[in-house]
Simulated scan of single mutants.
Amino acid sequence: MAAAPPDLVPASRRSAADLARLGEEISDRHSVTLESMLAILRSPQLSDQAARSLAIDVAAAGLVELRTQTDEHRDAILEPVVGAFERLRSDLRPLVRFGELDVQFVEPPSSGRALPGEVAHAARAMVRSAVLAFVDAGEARRVRIQWDCDGLNLLVRIRDDGRGDLTVQDDAMRPIGQRVAALDGTVVVSSTPGWGSEVQITLPLDPPAPDEPLQDQEGLSPREREVLRLLAEGRRNKEIAEALGVSVNTIKFHVSKLLRKTGARTRAEIAAIAR
């Protein structure tokens, strides 16, 4: 039986195949990085200091490449809320294992709604930043991290038992506030002197609804409407270019215009709104 042409393959199957391919690519790159580090550390031709320095360089370059690659694709990925929380626990494991901070995790219900990749990634980064802020203050001995989901928002709470003088204007909180604002969320910091501080973050799981359906908005050209339809199907720029018989750069130009006209931040937001 002949394979279905690309235009007839369901978007869900294409997305699953793309994610599987991405996973394989990341796994291969990760394996190469680890094998390179092992080879360096085992090399009899390098001193201990030289081996450590070179291994650090390889690890740093691998992390940059890995994060760049995953950042390009995470908008299209949904993470189960429990799985996203487990990744956070894994991120903080070295701090829990080797530090003096007692980190308590309150897991979200397993029935919680899956998180958009951008929200899950940002939430983990915010929690890490908050925990490190508590550690830098030098007074906290215990931190409690809780995630929950009300169906529309991811609810994050981080509480410590430190001095209780943290405010939303503190330097350590500014990066968190910027990330929250970028996702149209809210952050509240409550502190009680001598009893600790609590950071409460609310992150919407859906982009803001437009005033009218994208397809009905005035000012979209016929070509932009075609690009929009294919974006909603989960097509990548290359696939859209092939389907419309134009160059990838032309599609990038149309996507940038759609971003500007709709006020969306990412192509994933355009696709979600269009759907």
Rank of each mutant, 00 (worst) to 15 (best):
L54W: 04
K257Y: 01
A50G: 07
I240N: 02
P208Y: 02
D71E: 10
T70N: 05
E233D: 14
L22I: 06
S90K: 11
E224G: 05
R275D: 07
L152C: 12
Q49D: 14
S36G: 15
R236Q: 12
G138I: 01
R42D: 14
G62E: 02
A133L: 04
Q200S: 09
V248E: 09
G263T: 04
S190M: 09
P208A: 07
V188C: 07
A271E: 00
R141I: 08
D165G: 07
P116A: 03
R113D: 08
G263I: 02
N153I: 03
F85V: 09
E224R: 02
P222E: 00
L155S: 09
V180A: 08
E72I: 07
G112Q: 01
Q69R: 14
H254R: 00
L132P: 09
E107T: 14
H73N: 11
D171L: 08
R141W: 08
A84D: 04
E198F: 03
L230K: 03
R113N: 11
V82S: 15
P193R: 04
G245Q: 01
A172Y: 01
R42I: 08
G164Y: 00
D75E: 02
P193F: 04
G234D: 00
T33F: 04
A274Q: 04
D48Q: 11
Q169G: 08
L132T: 10
P204C: 05
V64L: 15
E100K: 14
A59E: 06
V188H: 10
M173K: 07
V199I: 13
R142F: 07
R235W: 07
G162M: 05
V127H: 05
